[in-house]
């Protein structure tokens, strides 16, 4: 592929963003796309990117893990309880340890049990959600103390996202870990035969995802001021937008660091939702458009992967 074509491909995520912006700006010039509005969308995208960064490693291995939302929720609930009791020193370690422990359980069950990971993740989501209901029993949601709200507000809300995206960029494209994750995702058996300790790297990917889920849980709770329990697989829905962003990133991973694409993907989805809201469309109709966008992205992703070569 010529250099100019590669550059064009690398610019495509940005062009998609610009195109969406221009379309909505023409349709709703007064309501859509003010600098302050875009900054709010960036904050939302940055929070979702926290989850998407971790999820990318799991999805790259070819696993659809629906437990990530529940891991974020439970770690946020326990972190909020600890935080409200003893401050930041309680909130952050409790959230992270909880998420890592849950991710460890999820990973070992999905790696070692010879059952489809999707089915195991559905079972685990039901268990985790039942646990969340029990933990918040007596309340609709668990409010966080005011002192923590600062992390949910600009500019602080952007910091964890920036740091995690930079770390993930290095991990995915400049480390042995990232290389092995791609190899495992391309073909687990071949990866095993080339001497990669597949179980070890799969477990590490889940633990990294758990860490991301914990940070997402903390920041999102600070942003929304409360954390709620979930029932009937509701926690899985929080994963959908980050998952779509990951697919967006997968489609362009040959040309652009996936973590940049993850952020652009999250921003793109929020931009489209916001544009539709400015047009007065209800959420259900917004979901139709977002769903169509997802299908197009997946289609594009498949087309791109057809020419991938694993080395």
């Amino acid at each position: 592929m010529s250099k100019s074509k590669r550059v064009l491909h690398a610019l495509m995520p940005f062009l998609a963003l610009v195109l969406a912006y221009v379309i909505f700006k023409i349709i709703e010039p007064a309501r859509f796309g003010s600098p302050s509005g875009l900054f709010l969308l960036l904050q939302q995208a940055m929070i979702q990117s926290l989850l998407a960064c971790g999820l990318y490693f799991i999805l790259t291995m070819g696993v659809f893990d629906l437990t990530v939302g529940a891991v974020a929720m439970i770690s946020a609930i326990l972190g909020t309880m600890a935080g409200n009791a003893i401050g930041w020193a309680g909130m952050i370690p409790v959230s992270i340890v909880t998420a890592l422990a849950m991710s460890m359980i999820s990973s070992q069950l999905m790696i070692r049990l010879k059952a489809p990971p999707m089915i195991i993740s559905v079972g685990l989501v039901l268990i985790y959600e039942a646990l969340s209901t029990k933990l918040i029993q007596g309340k609709y949601s668990l409010p966080i103390d005011d002192e923590f709200r600062i992390l949910g507000q600009a500019p602080w809300v952007l910091i964890p996202g920036i740091v995690l995206i930079l770390v993930s960029m290095v991990l995915i494209s400049r480390s042995k870990f990232g290389l092995y994750i791609h190899a495992i995702g391309s073909n687990t058996e071949i990866a095993k035969n080339t001497g990669i300790n597949v179980t070890k790297y799969q477990t590490l990917a889940w633990l990294f995802c758990g860490l991301c889920a914990a940070i997402y849980g903390i920041v999102n709770t600070c942003y929304t001021s409360s954390v709620a329990y979930a029932q009937n697989m509701a926690s899985a829905t929080s994963v959908f937008k980050p998952m779509m962003a990951c697919m967006f990133a997968t489609a362009f991973r040959k040309y652009l660091n996936p973590m940049i694409s993850v952020l652009i993907g999250c921003f793109f989805l929020n931009l489209v939702s916001n544009g539709l809201l400015c047009m007065g469309l209800e959420s259900s109709l917004q979901n139709v458009v977002v769903g169509l966008a997802m299908i197009v992205i997946v289609r594009f992703s498949n087309k791109s992967r057809k020419y991938d070569v694993s080395k």
Partner: peptide, 20 residues
């Protein structure tokens, strides 16, 4: 009017309404 909101989505929706 924005329907089909959940505790997961309503903060972002409110933020977007306030901006737009």
């Amino acid at each position: 009017e924005e329907w089909d909101q959940t505790t997961d989505t309503v903060t972002n929706t409110t933020t977007n309404i306030l901006a737009a």
